[in-house]
Design a protein around this nucleic acid. Structure first.
Lengths: 143, 143
DNA sequence: TATACAATTGAGAAACTTTCTCAATTAGAG
DNA sequence: CTCTAATTGAGAAAGTTTCTCAATTGTATA
């Protein structure tokens, strides 16, 4: 059977929410853990089938939904096209996406935390969440 | 025939890029101008057909592509689901989307302009663009 | 104003993405 | 080990987006 790193922790995360810890779900998680880049559903499906050849596409959709629910994975938007997924960053961070290789680099600061209160006062809108992605060219792709 | 506000300016924007100024394209633009909320393709199609009943769905797709190319319209992502459109804000601004009524409120400051250089230095990534949306509850929906 | 041409349109087909259905399987509690 | 409910795979169905092509239309030019 197939395992991911820290599988005990992950197992209890599944159980805490009443989800079963299935090989398919772990495979989807592992694929994303091993990549740290935005992957489309189809790419994830292909990579999962290297481990578990019988995995159906619908299961990949369902597994991703579950993993997002557990905050282990984030659903993201690329500039053209939607519905890609990446392993969730720890804490409150935002990704920089390399437009050449799709790799994700995180940066620590969130400039919105301070600004949100200011904006709430200025506009009267109760700010609840925000969505921020940066796009650029990573070191390797510059070379 | 159907006109939008500032139609001369808009007409020359089309011509400058070699696009024709068609009633369908103006209708799509007008629908978005009159709403200032994120609208899905289907909603836009319905509203356009109130003016031009024969407009096909494919034309709405194509018109939106053209309007995005002209920077008159922005393609955006809502929290669940994709591919909605809104009239482009002037200058470099980001939207606050009301999660109750989908209305868009803009705020002037872009916190990323200053931060981008800092992040480029820290991470070695050449930051090219960024994507930022805030979500909250607008004044009216709070009442 | 009339003409010619290339861009645009509508309609439906086609491609692609996502969700649903259901019988068979399986994880996990007892 | 057994039982049960959750999960799975497969394909159908639904939904979204793009493509094709003949007919139409905006506009540059005369």
């Amino acid at each position: 059977m197939f395992t991911v790193e820290n599988s005990k922790e992950i197992k209890s995360m599944f159980h805490d929410k009443g989800f079963k810890c299935t090989p398919q779900r772990l495979a989807v998680l592992k694929v994303l853990q091993d990549t740290s880049a935005y992957l489309s559903i189809n790419t994830i499906h292909l990579k999962v089938k290297e481990f578990l050849p019988d995995t159906g596409l619908a299961t990949v959709y369902r597994s991703l939904e579950t993993l997002v629910d557990l905050n282990l994975v984030v659903k993201v938007h690329l500039e053209d096209g939607c519905h890609s997924y990446v392993i969730a960053p720890e804490g409150h961070r935002h990704p920089i996406v390399c437009t050449d290789c799709n790799k994700v680099i995180e940066f620590a600061e969130c400039p919105l935390d301070d600004l949100s209160k200011q904006i709430s006062e200025d506009t009267g809108v109760q700010i609840k969440t925000h969505f921020l992605q940066l796009f650029g060219k990573c070191k390797e792709c510059q070379a």
